[in-house]
Design a protein around this nucleic acid. Structure first.
Lengths: 227, 227
DNA sequence: CCAAAAGTGTTAAGAGTACACCCATGC
DNA sequence: GCATGGGTGTACTCTTAACACTTTTGG
């Protein structure tokens, strides 16, 4: 019995939600898209292995903005070769942190638009459709109840960008005014002295996530974030 | 590297929340209380192993009312003998389904009151304090956002019993009238033709959980249970 | 001055919260 | 008739949801 760690990594690129998938160039599931994964090493914990999977398979190193354990899959025939259980993770990365892709396996690395993936009902390798679907569901739930939308954006971002992240991922048209009021009511955003530039139209204030305020609220009794 | 499956099983016994703990009679952690667990078998999935752990260690067989995966613990020194990762579960059982305890290992089987455990800051074996704390947190969160309180009660139960479950586990004094109104508003309870008997005071209506209604609501777009 | 994007206030409806008395039954 | 436990209505507050125009700036 082997233990693998697989990671569903999301990024928000050009106003769409994307997921990192690797086209395998060996059997089994040769030619299919899969989520990146590695076998858990003897001397590393699962989260370290998850980061290593991203590094080895997609050269994404040390810049994961958010990662959490998703679920552990243990059904018997996940891998046709032998039994492999998968401790899966889901993660978020700011697309500005993406580097050029290459990997040590020579597999093809792709950011795939989630809505396209769903429209085409693309068959991923192994049981990765299942893992991906659970990750997407978790992302949507988390986004509503914990302030993680920021993790898909640069350190300084506009309210409109954040608003767009929410609308895109939740696939709803939120009310722009209500969104601003709501998100401001938590006091989790600091207005910076900076503004956007280099585009037509009015300049937008840039905000940053107030992580110390977040930690303070989290440690209190009654903190319920909700969008 | 071995793979274990451990289960934090809760029950509601005589108006208190209890957790199933096993006093180990061999090293390591000899004499300490631990949550029940087994090694994952070559031909079983994790949930099956979780049920087996309860059966082997506490003769609780086929009557678990609710079980879900909790978290997978992978840190390097969980077990002093060799590396063991733990796929942990949390479960609920109606105390009426409890049988006499005996187990195939000769360990002592106990239902321990959760508030006592916390007051005494009892040290459990291995890293089981960590696992227990995460399970308790999950239980409290789930109870607020999913209708699982029923799983700790018999098939037919009174609103007062359900109310008591919520107050005890969440450790708050909810308003009895608001609770009734709220829980009824979801339409998840069927009033039965039965009433309590054999006690002083007014008879209470017995309700049952409407599982088909629950499945219907769950499959819809917008079902948000909350207490 | 026009097009593009940002920013903001008010009102109505619904949900949440706080609160206390009457009902049914056994003894 | 009294002690025990069950059951229920109302008023107030707060939150949510729906809705459109003005401001800033580049070209």
């Amino acid at each position: 019995m082997k233990v693998a760690v697989d990671v569903v990594l999301f990024s928000y690129i050009e106003k769409t939600l994307n997921v990192l998938l690797i086209k395998r160039n060996i059997e089994p599931s040769k030619g299919k898209l899969t989520i990146p994964g590695v076998l858990l090493g003897e001397n590393e914990n699962a989260e370290t292995a998850a980061i290593r999977a991203l590094n080895d398979k997609a050269s994404i190193n040390l810049t994961i903005d958010y990662i959490e354990q998703l679920y552990t899959f243990t059904s018997l025939n996940r891998d046709p070769r032998e039994r492999v259980i998968s401790i899966s993770y889901f993660g978020l990365i700011d697309s500005n942190n993406l580097k050029k892709f290459s990997n040590i396996y020579g597999d093809e690395v792709n950011w795939i638009d989630v809505s396209t993936l769903q429209t085409l009902q693309t068959k991923l390798g192994f049981d990765h459709n299942l893992i991906f679907n659970i990750a997407l569901k978790r992302l949507r739930t988390k986004l509503r109840y914990e302030p993680i939308g920021f993790e898909l954006l640069p350190d300084y971002f506009t309210l409109t960008e954040l608003y767009d992240v929410y609308c895109t991922i939740l696939d709803v048209k939120l009310d722009r005014r209500n969104f601003s009021r709501k998100i401001n009511s938590y006091g989790l955003l600091n207005e910076t002295q900076y503004k956007t530039k280099g585009h037509v139209g009015r300049r937008s204030k840039l905000y940053e996530f107030n992580i110390s305020k977040f930690n303070e609220l989290k440690s209190g009794e009654n903190f319920y974030f909700e969008i």
